[in-house]
C-alpha cells in the first residue's frame, strides 16, 4: 500500500467512483478502470485532473499508464504529492 492515509484513500476512492459512475463497493484496489469498469481515456484524464485539483498537486501525464486501478492511483498520487 502506498503512503496514503485512510482519509486520503477515502477521498481518492470517492472521486474515482464519482467519475466512473460506480458505487464504492464495486471498486477494489485491484479492479481495472478500463477493463473492469468501462473507463475510457477521457475518464482517465478526468481522474488525474480531479486529483490534481483536490490535492493541489501536479501529476505528470506519463503516470496515466500506472493509474489503471485504485492502488496505482494511490501510488502515483503519493509520489507526486511527496507524501
Amino acid at each position: 500500500m502506498a503512503n496514503v492515509t485512510a482519509e486520503q484513500a477515502a477521498t481518492i476512492k470517492e472521486i474515482v467512483c464519482e467519475i466512473l459512475e460506480l458505487e464504492e463497493d464495486e471498486v477494489t484496489g485491484e479492479s481495472l478502470f478500463r477493463e473492469d469498469h468501462g473507463a475510457d481515456s477521457l475518464r482517465a484524464i478526468e481522474i488525474l485532473a480531479s486529483l490534481e485539483k483536490e490535492f493541489k498537486v501536479t501529476i505528470d501525464q506519463a503516470e496515466l499508464s500506472r493509474m489503471v486501478n485504485l492502488n496505482g492511483v494511490y501510488e502515483v498520487l503519493a509520489e507526486s504529492a511527496g507524501w
Binding site: L42, E46, A49, S50, E52
Partner: peptide, 14 residues
C-alpha cells in the same frame, strides 16, 4: 479563479 489554470473540471471540456 483556481490556484492553477489547469485545475478545471475536465468532464466539462467537451
Amino acid at each position: 479563479t483556481d490556484e492553477k489554470p489547469y485545475y478545471i473540471n475536465t468532464a466539462h471540456i467537451p
